[in-house]
């Protein structure tokens, strides 16, 4: 009988993160999935990706949300996170390890976060980072269509964002919703994906032999489909160049869950 308070306490401790996550202000939107013509073919030739239905966070994670996470999980403070999980610039735009200050507005998307930190945040929402296929599929939508990529105007819009100077202050989250009710996939920040280190665009190993071939086992590194789709290819090139500890001023993230 005397053990009961301990067990109760343990139960409360375990329930804590779940309660906090349920209070997460930002919703998740259902996306139907299905077959999707990715720029990264699923079989190294031309096969479409097949996506299960999933839920995607409607907005990127904000400074305020990440601050709340860091307060609940102080091991992710910038002065405590081990260097093996985040580089020296992790959360460096904040005034202090536990305070945003004037240079980081609460509704701005959080940036200067490593892949490990982003993963840990998503776990706190009982979620994970989206896969590349999930992200690319979601980002193909516009306000009226699930796949607007064939429209030159869609491409122009994405490319014009890329060319905007990154020294400008980041706008707050809350752009126009797309057909799924998801916001800010294009036009605000770059976003981590779960398998950022899976695309290997640096070498087309089939075209090479000798030592280079040995660096990539299996059927060979990816071949790019839809070569006119520079907007998406640029994003893959950017993601492929990252290490999991890297943080940059315009790289943020959002989370996904199975449906």
């Amino acid at each position: 009988m005397r053990r009961r308070p301990v067990l109760l306490l343990l139960g409360l401790l375990l329930a804590g993160p779940a309660l906090a996550a349920d209070r997460a202000p930002s919703g998740y939107r259902p996306l139907p999935g299905g077959r999707f013509a990715s720029v990264v073919p699923a079989d190294d030739k031309a096969a479409p990706a097949v996506l299960r239905p999933f839920r995607l966070r409607a907005e990127p994670v904000t400074n305020a949300e990440f601050l709340a996470f860091v307060r609940r999980h102080p091991e992710w403070r910038r002065d405590r996170a081990p260097s093996v999980f985040a580089d020296a610039r992790y959360l460096s735009q904040w005034a202090a390890p536990d305070r945003l200050g004037p240079t980081a507005r609460p509704r701005q998307p959080v940036t200067q976060v490593s892949w490990f930190a982003a993963q840990a945040y998503c776990e706190s929402e009982h979620a994970r980072l989206p896969t590349w296929y999930e992200w690319e599929y979601a980002a193909a939508a516009d306000g009226t269509r699930a796949d607007a990529r064939g429209d030159p105007a869609w491409r122009e819009r994405v490319l014009s964002w890329y060319s905007r100077p990154s020294s400008d202050a980041l706008p707050p989250v809350g752009g126009a919703p797309d057909v799924h009710g998801v916001r800010d996939l294009n036009g605000l920040v770059w976003e981590w994906v779960e398998d950022f280190n899976a695309m290997m665009t640096s070498a087309d190993s089939r075209e090479q032999d000798g030592a280079d071939k040995l660096r990539f086992c299996g059927a060979g590194a990816i071949t790019m489909e839809q070569k006119e789709n520079y907007a998406t290819l640029m994003r893959i090139a950017m993601l492929s160049s990252l290490k999991a500890t890297d943080t940059t001023a315009n790289l943020g993230f959002r989370c996904a869950r199975p449906d």
Partner: peptide
């Protein structure tokens, strides 16, 4: 995936059950 990220190893499952990966 976390371990591969930590070690700087790239891998990607293909549909036929094979993997592309750096060595």
């Amino acid at each position: 995936r976390s371990l591969a990220a930590l070690l700087g190893v790239q891998y990607r499952p293909l549909r036929d059950g094979e993997f592309n990966h750096s060595s």
